[in-house]
Nucleic acid binder design. Sequence first.
DNA 1: GCGCGCTACTAGAGCGCGCTAGTAGGGCTA
DNA 2: TAGCCCTACTAGCGCGCTCTAGTAGCGCGC
Lengths: 349, 349
Amino acid sequence: MSPLDPLNQPDRTPAPRSRKPTMADVAARVGVSRALVSLVFRGQPGASPETRERVFEAAAELGYRPDIAARLLARGRSKVLGILFTARNPYHVDLVEAIYPAAEELGYDLVLSAAVPTRDEHKAIEALIGHRSEALLLCGPIIPVEDIEEIGRRIPTVVVGRHIRDAPVDVVTSYDRPGAREVVDYLVGLGHRDIVHVDGGSRPGGPERRRAYRDAMRAHGLADHIRVVPGNHTEEAGCDAARAMLAEDRPLPTAVFASNDQCAIGLLDVFTRSGVKIPEQVSIVGYDDSHIAGLSHIDLTTVRQDVPRLAHLAVQAADEQLRGAREAGAYLKLESKLLIRGTSGPPAQ
Amino acid sequence: MSPLDPLNQPDRTPAPRSRKPTMADVAARVGVSRALVSLVFRGQPGASPETRERVFEAAAELGYRPDIAARLLARGRSKVLGILFTARNPYHVDLVEAIYPAAEELGYDLVLSAAVPTRDEHKAIEALIGHRSEALLLCGPIIPVEDIEEIGRRIPTVVVGRHIRDAPVDVVTSYDRPGAREVVDYLVGLGHRDIVHVDGGSRPGGPERRRAYRDAMRAHGLADHIRVVPGNHTEEAGCDAARAMLAEDRPLPTAVFASNDQCAIGLLDVFTRSGVKIPEQVSIVGYDDSHIAGLSHIDLTTVRQDVPRLAHLAVQAADEQLRGAREAGAYLKLESKLLIRGTSGPPAQ
DNA sequence: GCGCGCTACTAGAGCGCGCTAGTAGGGCTA
DNA sequence: TAGCCCTACTAGCGCGCTCTAGTAGCGCGC
C-alpha cells in the first residue's frame, strides 16, 4: 500500500492557499494603476520615490512576485536562454554553473532542460522552445548534425563543445586538436610508445581528438603503434574498453588517452580493481578537467578547457544573434591546456 | 563601464529569422478558426479527422510549436513542477534524473533551477515561482527552516531529503537514523572502535546522522570513542577533515563515517595522497550512494537511498497537494540500506 | 493668460493561448 | 413540417503582464 493512499480524496478545486496575488492586487492596495506598478517593478523612471516605496511595501505584504510567463508573453523579447545539458556529465554541470553568471551579466534568465536516460535531447529541446527561450545553448549535444541545423534555422542556437561546420548555429568550443596533440607529445616525451586512444565515437570532440591522436602519433613516427579502441563519453565505455584490453593476449599499453574524463575514470576503475598500478603500469589521461577529475581521489591528468570563458562566449554569441548583430555561423575556439596530475608518469620499462 | 552598456541599444525587433508562428498562423493556413486548432492540439474531441490531419500538416510546414508560457497563462493549472537542486551534488542530479519520469507519469512538466555558487537557493526558488511552477520540489535545501516555512505557505512544496517537522510542506526522505546506525553496527562488527564521524553540519540529514552515530556508539559501549569532526556535504569539507586528522598528534582513527559521499570522497582523496592505505589503515564510509560512489574508481562503501521511489513519492505528494487532496505536512520516510564496497574492511590492528 | 516642458500617472491594446457559450447545418423522428 | 439531437465548428473573453500613447497638474517665462 502506498503511504499516500489513505489520503486519496476526490479532486477538489485549487489548494486552500489563496490565489497568487497579481499586479492588479498590488495596484489596488496602493491605489494606483496597474501600469505604474509595472513601471516600478521594471525599474523604469516615471514613478515618484514615495510611490515606488509604497508599491514595494504593498507587494511585500501581499507576497507578490511578478509572473515571468506573463511577462515573457507581453514583452517582445523574453530574455530567456534555454540550456540543454546532460545531467550525468560533470563537465556539462560545470558549464551550467559558469553560464549562470555569464547570462546574468547580459540580463538573461536561464531555463534548464536536462537530457536524461528517459528523456532524450529532442524532448528536452522542445521543452526549452516551449518555455519561450529566445535562444538555445546546447552543451555537447549528441543528436545528428541535420537536427541541429534544423533547430538552428528555427531559433538562434549556440553549440558548446561540439565541432559543427557550416550549420546555421554558432559554435563555441576548445581547440581539440592542439589539446589532444599536447597529450600525445607529453606521453611520448615521457617515453611512452604504446599509447592507446579510447575514443568518443561521434560524441562532441570525439572525432577531432581521435584524428589529432592519429596525426600526433604519426608525427612522432609511431604510426605502427596507433590503436584506437571504440568508446564514448561515459564511465561504462571506459570500463568496457579496459576490460577489453585486459582480456587480450598482448600486453597492456603503457598509456591510455581517453576521449573524456568520464571515460578515463571508467578505465581507472577497472584497471585498479584488476590490480593494475596507475601510473606505474599504465598512464591514463582524460579530457575536460571536469571538477571530479581534480577534486576526488581520482587525480586525473587531463586537458583543461577554459569553462568560464567558454560560457561567457557562448552567452555573448547568443546575445549577438538575438540582437541581430550578425548571422549565425560564428565559430569560436579557445585554447586548452594539459594538466598533469597523478595518473600519468614514465613507463615502467 | 557597466558590462551592460554595450547592450543598451534600443532593442531591435527579433532576429532575421521569421517570427515564430502562432496558432493563428496555422488556423489561417488551414482556413479554420484558432479555437479549432487549439482543440486539435489539445487532443480534444470536436474536430473531424480530416481537419485534424490538415491542422497537423500545416503546423508541421510552418514549424509551429505551442507556446508553453501562453498556455500556462491561459490555463488555470500549469502542470509545472519547479525543481531546486544543487548542480554540484551528484545525489541531487540522480534525484533530478529520477523525477523526470515520475513527473511525466502524472502529466507534469518540469522546470529546473540550479543553486550554484553565484546563485543561491533563494534566487533559484524565485525563478521557479516566476516560471509558474505550481509546486516546488526542493532537493536537500540548505536555507533556514523559517524560509522553507514561508515558501510552503506561499506555494505547495515538497522537501526531499531533509528532515523538517511541523512546517507547511511535505517531506519525503529516507530514514537517516537506521541507515547511520547500520553503518556503525557494521564497522563495530568488523572490529572497529575508533570510529570518527565527519558530520554534515546543519545540511540536510546532517543532524540526524550525527545523532544516530552518537546513539549507536553509545549502544555499543563506545561512548568514550565518540568523536565528531565538523564538516559539511562537499569534497572540500572532507579534505579539510582529513587534513585535520593527519595533523594531529594522536593516531588516525581506524574508520571514518562521513555524512555524505562527497565528503567521503574528499577524505579518500587526502588520505590516499598522504599514503594512507584505504581500507587497510582507515575504512571510509559515505552516505547517499550517488552514482559516482559506485561507478568510479572510488568504490565507496555507502548507504543507498531508494532514489526512484523517493522521486516518485515526491511528485505524488506535490500532486496531492495540488489536487487539494490534503493539506501540506505529510512526512514520508523510506528505508535505506548499507552498501558494502571497497573502502571499508576490518581494522589492521 | 497662454503656451511650454516636465513629472507623475492612466487607459487600453495586445502577447499566444484555453475555454465557455454559442451557431450552422444535417439527419432523424413523429 | 416542426422539433430535436448531434457533429463540427466559431466568437470572444480573459490569463498577468508590457508598452505606446496619452492626460492631469504644476511651475515657469513672457
